[in-house]
Amino acid sequence: MTAVGSGTPSRTVPVAGERLPGAWRLGLARGAMELKLFFRQREQVVFTFAFPIVFLFLFASIFGDDMENTGSTASQYYVASMIAAGIMSTSFQSLGVSIAIERDEHVLRRLRGTPMPPAAYFLGKIWLVLVTGVLETAALLVFGTTLYDVDLPSDITGWLTFGWLFLLGITSCALLGIAISSVPKSGRSATSVVVLPFLVLQFISGVYILIDTVPNWMLTIGSFFPLKWLCQGLRGVFLPQAAASLEPAGSWEYGRAALVLGAWCVGGLVLCLLTFRWKNRKEG
């Protein structure tokens, strides 16, 4: 073969200093784009933010009584519960469903064919989850403090506890969401595959049902997963100390909560690395 097109066009001649854009910068760009997409889908916004607030309103109105010897009401219990469920919804449910759909609709395949580093995709998802998770939590807190007299933490220790619970909770649930996105065979079945385990976990982790009412064997199963510990920790942050008497252990067990949530962060990451696929199953 002779010299066909021996000179590459000038626009593709590499110039010193022109490097591949870094994962961090692209992650920010992807995060901005993900948020733009999220807020342009009205139904998704309403579903994500209104769902926990509507549930909080329902549960807090139906079971609003004082809880004996706790110095708090069931309404306040549900504020902590719904914040935990909201965190899991914006991370686990949102990622589990959206990544499955993106895989099915070949969004992932298209990205794989560009020089975008894979890390940028996940960083973008992290930004999306963090921003929506913070907004969701803030909305529930505003609702909870005005309607149900929930007290915000009064000292820095309380806020720090809230901070690490939020971060470990949202990280572990986000990683589990990424992992479960590989389970559905198509984008269409994604919602049911992701929502069912989430619903079950909410029942057995004391989100909808008071923790002292959930049968022990259910709680035992629930305690293998992050949601139970996130709920429990957040009750510690937002309920009076006396309410710890509701807990099976009689205390908030922050140490164990940190341990289980931290273990799920590591385990979830390993699971993601082992199972994440850019193609759907048909394409092997």
Binding site: T12, E18, L26, M33, G113
Partner: peptide, 28 residues
Amino acid sequence: GIVWQDGGAAQELTVAETVRHFARYYPR
């Protein structure tokens, strides 16, 4: 460069937003 046969472009982004976003992935 790859021209895919089907889909994979975000429905809610405009043409200009999509093209500008993908431009960011490339060094030149």
